[in-house]
């Protein structure tokens, strides 16, 4: 029992990370059909914002020393701020561009952010003790797991409930859902496009910052590439969930986390190194059988 619960918790906590990432990507895709490759770099930036720029090996903690009730809002604000800034400075001018152009522009933006961090902080990973209280192990249902894992899962569930309420109960949420479904139509019906898009970027940035906090306290490291692998998985989750479908993105995120964890458990040692090959193979299979994703969003179907 304890063994199985342990695997369940492992899968859930990894899935939570992917689900949060996938939500951040799906939100923006929903309102402007942009696959935002800069998302991973927003994650990295949010962590580095807690440090003072220096190329020395030892990190100079700056905002990282704040008490948690200030630290968390600060980080979320940084992520949201950077994300909104990228919308205002860059993506606003790409509203009418085709998806490939937007994608490459977002990639170029991510490139700029990454090398900006590299210049300020050098490539050496920096250590940072974020929310150290979360490293204690706790016993639950016969499984002994780090407190952080539990909090990750709870936070994700909390975010999901909060976001659902926000999207369903508030006018802003309604506008956002309308825009995600049919942007042109929504605009004609009086949805203020700029506000909705900025809102989506702010939410997406805050989600990136939430991932940054979890990754930062889990790994204890600020690393320029830290957002990259989560972002790739999140991106895949968004697609197999059905581009633009928020629920699909979340489900697919959890599914990917579960597949990766289960593979690690059941594969024999020699095959474990090939884990990712199996995971990506599964992705191809899903796409072959459900090219529109698990939950296709209405209005994103391709012609023919």
């Amino acid at each position: 029992m304890g063994g199985i619960m342990q695997v369940v918790f492992d899968a859930l906590s990894l899935g939570s990370l992917y689900a949060l990432g996938a939500l951040g990507i799906a939100l923006i895709f929903g309102v402007m059909r942009l696959v935002n490759f800069a998302h991973g770099d927003v994650i990295a930036f949010s962590v580095f914002a807690l440090l003072w720029p220096s190329v020395d090996a030892v990190a100079i903690i700056f905002a990282g020393n704040l008490p948690w009730f200030l630290l968390i809002p600060f980080t979320l604000a940084v992520g949201a701020g950077l994300s909104v800034l990228s919308e205002v400075v860059v993506f606003r001018r790409f509203r009418r561009a085709n998806p490939a152009t937007m994608m490459i522009a977002s990639f170029a933006l991510g490139f700029v952010i990454r090398y900006f961090l590299l210049m300020l902080f050098s490539s050496r990973p920096k250590s940072i003790s974020l929310l150290p209280g979360l490293s204690q192990p706790v016993e639950i249902l016969g499984a002994r797991i780090p407190l952080l894992q539990l909090i990750t899962i709870l936070v994700t569930i909390g975010v999901l409930i909060g976001l659902t309420a926000f999207l369903r109960r508030t006018r802003f949420g309604l506008e956002m859902r309308a825009a995600a479904e049919n942007f042109t139509m929504a605009r004609m019906l009086g949805v203020r496009a700029n506000r909705v898009i900025m809102g989506a970027f702010a939410l997406s940035g805050a989600l990136a910052a939430a991932i940054a906090l979890i990754l930062g306290s889990q790994t204890g490291t600020a690393n320029i590439m830290m957002g990259a692998s989560v972002m790739l998985m999140a991106f895949i989750a968004t697609v197999i969930g059905g581009m633009g479908s928020l629920a699909g993105a979340v489900i697919a995120g959890f599914a990917l986390g579960a597949i990766a964890t289960v593979m690690q458990v059941i594969l024999p040692p020699d095959a474990r190194a090939f884990r990712d090959a199996f995971v990506y193979g599964a992705v191809i299979l899903v796409l072959i059988f459900r090219p529109q994703g698990l939950l296709a969003a209405r209005g994103t179907k391709e012609r023919v």
Partner: peptide, 18 residues
Amino acid sequence: MRLSGIAASIATFAMLAM
């Protein structure tokens, strides 16, 4: 090649990763 659009893009990416 049966896929189109973004699904095809992700499938090619999965191929690269594999």
